[in-house]
């Protein structure tokens, strides 16, 4: 019964928060309207949502988020310097990262993370979802890059989404 009436317990407060940010006020009326929208929208869009993924170890996820914010800042500065130095100082390369993650959400989060972090863009996912091809802006040591991606970003995501 709870599942039918409240299909996404996390989505409802999130939508309420987005509504409040959108109208840029926290008046009681707006909170009520936001709650109503947050309750109705998941109810109507229920069929479009993929299966819910259980989240283990929320603390690891939080730590991962902070690591991510720090890495985004560093990434921007590094890429900015590479661009200013000019095209002669970059050494682009494709590297192939074998994936241990299996869930769709995990893989998409990893791909997004790679796009936001130092000099790498996830370029291509193999149709069988076993490997991710990453394009690096300045790759001196492809092996080290693969190891860094696997240790720094994939391990926390594995802990959160697929503990076994």
């Amino acid at each position: 019964m709870t599942i039918r009436l409240l299909p996404h317990p996390i989505l409802t407060p999130l939508l309420t928060l987005i509504w409040l940010l959108l109208v840029n006020s926290a008046a009681p009326g707006q909170i009520l309207l936001g709650l109503l929208l947050g309750w109705l929208i998941p109810l109507f869009t229920l069929r479009f949502w993929p299966d819910r993924v259980p989240i283990h170890q929320p603390l690891t996820l939080l730590r991962f988020l902070f690591l991510l914010i720090y890495d985004i800042l560093v990434a921007n500065v590094i890429v900015a310097f590479r661009i200013l130095l000019g095209p002669k100082h970059v050494q682009p390369a494709f590297v192939v990262v074998p994936l241990d993650l299996r869930s769709d959400l995990g893989i998409s989060l990893l791909a997004n993370t790679i796009c936001l972090t130092p000099g790498t863009v996830s370029a291509w996912l193999s149709p069988d979802r076993r490997t991710l091809v990453v394009h690096g802006l300045d790759v001196r040591d492809p092996e080290a890059l693969v190891t860094t991606i696997k240790r720094r970003y994939e391990t926390p995501l594995l802990k959160v989404f697929e503990p076994c």
């Binding site: 985004i72 921007n76 890429v79 900015a80 095209p87 970059v90 796009c115 394009h135």
Partner: peptide, 19 residues
């Protein structure tokens, strides 16, 4: 505008502009 091939150009806008 400056980098040489498409894949390296992809890096500029996605990172520098978001920050």
């Amino acid at each position: 505008a400056r980098l040489r091939d498409f894949y390296t150009r992809l890096h500029g806008p996605t990172k520098a502009t978001t920050l």
